[in-house]
Design a protein around this nucleic acid. Sequence first.
DNA 1: CCGCGACGATTGGCAATGCCTATCGAAGCC
DNA 2: GGCTTCGATAGGCATTGCCAATCGTCGCGG
Lengths: 316, 316
Amino acid sequence: MNIRDLRYMLAVAEHRHFGRAAEACRVSQPTLSVQLRKLEEALGVVLFERSSKQVVPTPICELLLAHARIAVAETEAMTALAQASADPLRGALRIGIIPTLGPYLLPLVFAPLREALPELEIEPWEDITATLIERLRAHELDAALLATEPEGADLLSRPLFTEPFLAALPPDHPLAAQDRIRESDLVPDVLVLADGHCLRDQALAACGLAGPVGGALRASSLATLINMVAAGYGTTLVPGLAAGAAQDSGIALRPLAARASRTIRIVWRAAFPRRAAVESVARVIAERLAPFAAASERDIAALDRAPAARHVAGTR
Amino acid sequence: MNIRDLRYMLAVAEHRHFGRAAEACRVSQPTLSVQLRKLEEALGVVLFERSSKQVVPTPICELLLAHARIAVAETEAMTALAQASADPLRGALRIGIIPTLGPYLLPLVFAPLREALPELEIEPWEDITATLIERLRAHELDAALLATEPEGADLLSRPLFTEPFLAALPPDHPLAAQDRIRESDLVPDVLVLADGHCLRDQALAACGLAGPVGGALRASSLATLINMVAAGYGTTLVPGLAAGAAQDSGIALRPLAARASRTIRIVWRAAFPRRAAVESVARVIAERLAPFAAASERDIAALDRAPAARHVAGTR
DNA sequence: CCGCGACGATTGGCAATGCCTATCGAAGCC
DNA sequence: GGCTTCGATAGGCATTGCCAATCGTCGCGG
């Protein structure tokens, strides 16, 4: 059974006239005649009593019409719904983001995203890398912003920007007197995040530490970590975008000798159909972060006096 | 859009596997693949995210599925409804019947009709000929039992049986002494029904009266007429089937010299699709009335001692 | 009585659709 | 590296859907 035939049936019932019904359906009268006969044969029921005077729906037809109307209305609702959401740059896009990035990146990119993609409703979801990838694969997220490259052919990614790590020191720390810090100097009292945070692994790697470190502290967030450093419990590495927040806590920030950094990537399922949406988001973020990347290259030595993040945040 | 495609869509959503969905739909997997792609193109929306691992409906697909389910269910309801009522010998059949026939015929044929056509729900409607024909043409009746042949090519009819008219006399009427009454003898004090009853016209014609008769009485029903005769107000003609009721009123019935009679016909619209139902009803009535017709031919002279209607009513 | 207009049914031809089998291509698994 | 699984693709064929033209019937008006 074809929805088209139901439309024909409804038209004939409404107009009680094959010719006018055909016109309303934008087909020729014979077409409608034939199709209606086929429908009658398919249903095994005479739908209309034709005489030279009039075309009258049979009682059973009246019953069927009610169902036909609903069926047609539902399919029309489907096309309307589909049409309204055909634009991939429209509708919800669930984006995962790691906790050491979200609080510092989102304030920067939310407004530009809204401006560039007004129909796209971005729903951020903050969690650690492993969980985000899991949710991505489970179709609970559409994309994720990570600092690592994902494994597996089912996920694709592209880099968005690179942010340097900075040494974060209590202002009265002996190393705070240096303009540039050697990563290995941080080892004795470096504080790191809890397991699962990619920043933890990357910070340890930057310092040349492979296994677990001595300190018992496992901070659950970068904000906690920064406050611990400010309180003089040790040193740590913070990503460039968090520099502003770190400085507000009264911490000394210094560039690193080896210029350790992390690259933020956007990740999505290879089969995700709204790739256009992901790529648009990626482009907006990359463009928004471009001045910061340039600045961090140029002014990295002067970062503690004019932090890049601050500088960028002031740019409009 | 084809309902079949919606079924494919529902199957894939349910099985999350093209092969199994195709199997469930009794088509090959490529067919389902192609049709689904076409549906996606028609809607302008990706319905399923395919990867080597899994087939997952997109969010918009989930919305569409709800509508698709309703549409499919409605069309299924249509086929079920049609199938249930495909049998023309099933369902309601609205039959008009003239008032001078209904009360006497229906008791005879109701049981046989119910036995022969158990699925047919006969809805009798009693009214005068003109009104019945009007309602028939307006599709408010499906058939009618009349004593006249209808005019117009849009109506068809077939005769069911013929019933003789009998002279109805008060027992003490002078004519009651005769075995057989000449119609013209009834003229002086014949009573007739009100305008619109075909029996009125036929009784007048039988007596050789063309225009209006002298008596002011215009009985509104045959029962009234019979009671008037029983009360000695005059004579009349009654149709054979009413003979039993007439005799119960203590009236003398006599056959007529010219054997005036009326032929009961069943009438229906030429375009009426359930002709089979009408013809079945016609056959059952004709068969049920056959013994009466035979009896009236044979025993018409003895009718006042063993009334044909009584005789028939006792036959089983 | 005949021609005419209205209207649904029928016909014949053509393009589009729907389905099949066979095959491909990518991914995962011994 | 071969094997399996699974969705996509290709080619061929029957069916379907549509149209223009025509038919058949009915009712109307001259």
